[in-house]
């Protein structure tokens, strides 16, 4: 065990926090999308680390599944971004405010 579990979990937590903060703060749709991917990968890292530490294969399986689904999600998410760009002529997330009360 080269790297202790706590380090791995800390890294995962930092990555997750950066992702969440990015989703909240950044104005650009594409960056927000990248931050969402960051959150996903933080979760993946946590899965792998815990699975490795406890010797449980389920964590590995979950990670591979998440990667597969994330690929599909990335395709859907990117196509939404392209559609948004062609409709609003803008990449700003604040232009998506139709639900304002």
């Amino acid at each position: 065990m080269l790297v202790p579990l706590t380090h791995m979990m800390t890294l995962s937590f930092v990555l997750f926090s950066i992702g969440v903060a990015g989703v909240f703060i950044r104005k650009d749709v594409l960056t927000v999308f990248l931050c969402v991917e960051l959150i996903l990968n933080a979760a993946n890292l946590a899965f792998v680390a815990v699975a490795n530490a406890f010797g449980d294969e389920f964590g590995h399986v979950a990670v591979v599944t998440i990667i597969a689904i994330a690929a599909a999600e990335a395709a859907v998410g990117l196509s939404i971004v392209i559609k948004l760009h062609s409709d609003k002529k803008s990449m700003k997330l604040s232009s998506l405010n139709e639900l304002r009360g």
Binding site: L93, S94, L96, N97, L99, R100, G101
Partner: peptide
């Protein structure tokens, strides 16, 4: 209530 809904996804 509706004032709180600013329409911003974030």
């Amino acid at each position: 209530q509706s004032r709180k809904r600013n329409g911003k996804p974030q």
